[in-house]
């Protein structure tokens, strides 16, 4: 029956320490390694803050008046306001254009299209996400900018004289490379992430809630408004903020299409600059101590800004996820 008999456990085959605890060296070592890898994230973030702050002391010590001016010419003026304006304005435009599209697609994929057919749609969105930033910039500057230039000129002459519209879309220096074009490209680039995060959030809405709305005789849109939206509100806001953060940090595509002049203006079709773009375009030429320090300082500023936006965004997303789990 059996080919092997068990050894008699009473036979002592050594000392009585066969049950001894010596946690294998490899086990402890592996745990330490894993912990170290995890800590690396925190270490890098702290180091980034520290080193950039250290390098930008020259800029900061120039006094707040210096930092809070608009002009930035690499020579005597190192103000942050102009580039900050460009970053914010182009990102806002990106969000205004991109969010309705993203949410529309997210709703489409979760409520309208059946699960089986949703996959090819998701592939398309993934394709959108995988195109590198520099390729969007290349297409932007070579194809989009000249094409938009004509359109902008037409619009500008069209709204000439009309109070608000002229301030926004008019002006004499209208160019293809402008805040608006940057905003447009940003909208395209942040759509995938807002869509995918919104989809995740919307998918957590319990089916019973949706069925409850339908059971009252609601149309699909009414169901979305009544059952889906209240649940996913917070999470979608978080997704939008994350998209906004991405837009602010987007460097290369913006650098290529925003024009190359630092200014604050209400005219959206004017050239501008953004924090990330100016660092990218001018760091190579920055030889002077304060110039370089200013650019690094702007980098630190952008870093802190995007971290803050992401913190708030994640808080929204986590809060909504926690609610969904609790419910």
């Amino acid at each position: 029956m059996s080919t092997v008999t068990k050894a008699d456990p009473a036979i002592p085959a050594g000392s009585a320490n066969a049950l001894n605890a010596r946690r294998p060296l490899g086990d402890r070592g592996f745990q330490i390694l894993a912990l170290a890898a995890g800590l690396l994230v925190l270490v890098i973030l702290v180091l980034i803050t520290y080193t950039t702050a250290q390098q930008s002391v020259t800029w900061f010590s120039g006094g707040f008046k210096d930092i809070f001016q608009v002009a930035f010419d690499g020579n005597t003026h190192f103000g942050a306001m102009g580039v900050l304006f460009g970053t914010v304005i182009s990102s806002v435009i990106g969000v205004i254009i991109g969010v309705p599209v993203s949410i529309g697609i997210a709703l489409l994929l979760t409520q309208v299209v059946s699960v089986r057919w949703a996959r090819p749609f998701v592939y398309v969105i993934d394709l959108l996400a995988v195109v590198p930033s520099v390729v969007w910039g290349l297409w932007g500057i070579i194809v989009l900018v000249p094409w938009l230039q004509k359109i902008y000129l037409d619009i500008a002459s069209g709204v000439k004289g009309i109070p608000v519209l002229d301030a926004l879309f008019g002006g004499s220096n209208v160019g293809g490379a402008s805040f608006f074009t940057a905003g447009l490209i940003l909208a395209i680039m942040i759509t995938p992430i807002i869509t995918s995060l919104s989809r995740e959030v919307i998918a957590t809405v319990p089916d019973i809630d949706k069925e409850g709305a339908y059971a009252l005789g609601a149309t699909r849109w009414e169901m979305i408004r009544g059952a889906v939206w209240p649940h996913s509100q917070g999470g979608v806001v978080g997704a939008i903020l994350i998209g906004f953060g991405r837009a602010m940090g987007e460097t290369i595509a913006v650098a290529l299409v925003i024009g190359d002049s630092v200014e604050v203006s209400s005219h959206l079709f004017y050239s501008g600059h953004s924090i990330a773009a100016i660092i990218a375009l001018q760091f190579g030429e920055a030889t002077g101590g304060e110039f370089r320090s200013a650019l690094i300082g702007l980098g630190l500023f952008l870093f802190v800004l995007t971290i803050l936006v992401n913190l708030v965004a994640r808080w929204f997303v986590e809060r909504s996820a926690r609610r969904a789990r609790g419910a």
């Binding site: 008999t5 002592p12 085959a13 009585a16």
Partner: peptide, 27 residues
């Protein structure tokens, strides 16, 4: 023959797969 084989296996098990080795204080 089989017994010898078993003994052999027992030996091997004791070496490679460390069997229980506690003093026989089991009540």
């Amino acid at each position: 023959m089989e017994e010898q084989q078993d003994q052999l296996n027992v030996q091997q098990d004791q070496e490679v797969l460390p069997k229980l080795a506690v003093p026989d204080t089991a009540p």
